[in-house]
Simulated scan of single mutants.
Amino acid sequence: MAAPSRRLHNPVIFVCDLQDKFRNAIWQFDKILLTSQKVLRAAQILQIPIVVTTQNAGKLGPIVPELQPLIKDAAVHSDKTLFSMVTPEVSSHALFSGQSKREVVIVGIESHICVTQTALDMLAQGHKVYILADGVSSCNEEEIPVALARLRAEGAVVTTSESWIYETMGDAGIAEFRDIAKLVKETSADTKTALAGLLSKI
């Protein structure tokens, strides 16, 4: 029997503009952080590269402290005025310089602006894009289902963090499965909280 292998071979996680200045403006911001923490912990276990952006950090500040320990080894940390995360610094990084396409997973804000424009740019470059519905939001909650419907129509996969984590693995025989299963169990209450909040608008 062949050795177990992962279902997704080139994933990369995009963390979009999760800055403290937005904490009180974004609907269900605390729920996005719960999902982002889980996904970033999974990235550590599965050794998935991370791309982080801030929107005009000079004025809007750094990424929230809850995520700082989980992004310290990010492959790219790009500050931007663009709405899309696909800045020149990101585009020119070795992650995207080869011929192979990536499975780009996006969490962050705002679903109808920066998340949407990032997804459209990545799709245009031929990458597969996953939007984690329990990991994105906007100031106005009504924007979210409109943005997700548009992104589905454009070819992005709208899914949940747990579904994506298990799809990335694809096989309970991989070496990291036990640690991921432990993570999923540890964060089960957070997952329910995030789903109940953010998916209520889908």
Rank of each mutant, 00 (worst) to 15 (best):
T81E: 05
G126E: 06
D20A: 15
P69G: 09
P88E: 12
Q19K: 04
S36M: 06
M122H: 01
I26E: 04
V115R: 07
V105N: 06
Q117L: 14
R7V: 01
I50N: 09
L123V: 03
L8W: 14
Q68N: 11
G98S: 13
M122Q: 13
V51N: 07
V107I: 14
Q55K: 00
Q19H: 03
V51A: 08
E89W: 11
M122D: 03
P49E: 02
V105K: 07
L70Q: 09
L82H: 15
L33Q: 03
P65L: 03
V15A: 07
H112Y: 12
V90N: 11
L40A: 10
K38V: 09
N24V: 02
P69C: 05
I45A: 13
T53R: 01
N10Y: 09
Q117H: 13
K21C: 03
E66T: 06
P62I: 01
A119Q: 05
I106W: 00
V105I: 14
V52I: 10
I106V: 13
T54H: 00
I63A: 07
V52S: 06
F96L: 08
V105D: 08
Q99G: 14
L82K: 15
A57W: 02
E110G: 01
I63N: 03
E103L: 04
A124D: 10
D73H: 10
G58K: 15
L120V: 05
K38H: 13
K38A: 11
R7N: 12
K21P: 04
D30W: 05
A94Q: 13
S36W: 15
G98K: 05
V115C: 01
K72L: 06
S100Q: 14
K128F: 10
K80P: 02
L8C: 09
R6M: 15
S100T: 12
A124R: 12
V39N: 09
L82S: 15
S78N: 07
L67P: 03
A57M: 09
Q28Y: 10
Q47R: 15
D121R: 12
I50P: 00
S91G: 13
K101H: 14
E66C: 08
D20C: 06
A74Q: 14
K21S: 12
P11G: 05
F96C: 10
L70E: 05
W27F: 10
L67T: 06
S36F: 12
E103A: 09
I109R: 00
K21E: 02
T81S: 10
K31H: 11
T35N: 07
L70N: 04
A25F: 10
M85P: 11
S84R: 00
Q47Y: 03
Y130I: 04
A124Y: 06
